[in-house]
Amino acid sequence: MTEITVRPLGEDDWQDYRSVRLAALRESPEAFAASIDEEEAYDEDLWRDRMRRSARLVAERAGGAVGVVSIGTAKGSEDASAGELFGLWVHPEARGSGVATTLVKEGARLATERGQSHLVYWVGTENGRAVAFASGMGFRPTDYRRPMGVVSEEDGEEEIAMVLPLGDDRSPTLHL
């Protein structure tokens, strides 16, 4: 199997991000709060703005995009020390091959470089596969819950904040 590489995308890479994001929305529309029709209509300025708001990492294999993840600042956090991992998607043909693991590890490394002390990942409470994956990556459940942006049978009606402590502080504290 060809090696997985992860490439950070800058503002000028907005078309690369747009392409993989739209592929994710087409393939897994139930996994995202946005719709393909809505995001296809976004203009270049909006895509560039998105690139400035959060870091975007794309996983590639043999020169083609096979996954994507975003790293931002956790919404509602008291300061910028809480990062948030979101928008994780892996192409169906690449699932189970280490792409998601590689993306999360690179996202955690980036968050550490940015000085963030922990990374928050919201997961559907009924999505056993996603909860198990996050737990296996070192994320720990918290008491924080919120309604799902999109309710699905797989994810349930609410999601849980799971936290990955970064750096020397391995305690899963979270202040939202």
Rank of each mutant, 00 (worst) to 15 (best):
D37M: 02
L88T: 06
N127E: 11
A94F: 03
A111M: 03
P147R: 13
D43C: 04
W47F: 12
R50N: 06
R48I: 14
Q15G: 01
A134D: 15
D43R: 00
G149F: 00
D49M: 03
P141T: 08
Q116P: 11
A132D: 12
A161G: 12
S171I: 15
H91F: 02
S35C: 05
S117K: 12
F32N: 02
Y121T: 10
P92G: 05
K75M: 10
G83L: 00
V90F: 01
A34N: 09
E84W: 03
Q116R: 09
A33W: 01
G72D: 11
D37V: 09
V69M: 06
A108V: 10
E113L: 10
Y17W: 08
D16A: 14
G96W: 02
G167F: 08
R21I: 06
S19T: 12
S19N: 08
K105Q: 14
D169T: 15
R114F: 12
P172I: 07
E157R: 14
W89Q: 00
S54T: 05
V66R: 04
L110D: 13
A130R: 03
S97D: 09
S35H: 00
E39V: 07
E158I: 10
G98C: 03
G124K: 02
E11V: 15
S28D: 14
D13V: 09
E158M: 02
R140V: 15
S54Q: 12
D143H: 12
L46F: 06
T73A: 10
H91A: 15
A80F: 06
R21E: 08
P29M: 15
T101F: 03
D43Y: 04
L119A: 10
S117E: 15
R56D: 04
W122Q: 12
R26I: 10
A100M: 09
L119N: 12
A134S: 13
Y144M: 05
V163P: 04
E60V: 03
S171D: 14
L164C: 07
W122N: 13
A111K: 00
R7Q: 13
G136C: 04
V123P: 09
L88S: 02
V120K: 09
T73N: 10
E106P: 00
E154D: 15
Y17N: 05
R109C: 03
R146G: 02
L46T: 13
E38H: 07
A41I: 00
G124I: 02
T73L: 07
P141D: 04
E84C: 10
G128R: 04
P92W: 03
G10K: 01
V151R: 14
E106N: 08
D12P: 01
R129M: 03
P147W: 01
T102F: 01
T73E: 08
P8N: 01
L166E: 13
R61S: 13
D49I: 00
L22P: 10
G67K: 02
V99S: 07
K105A: 14
G96Y: 03
Y17H: 07
R129L: 07
L46A: 13
W122Y: 09
R18A: 00
L103T: 07
S81W: 06
S19H: 05
R146C: 09
V131S: 13
A130F: 01
S97E: 12
K105N: 11
Y17Q: 06
L85V: 14
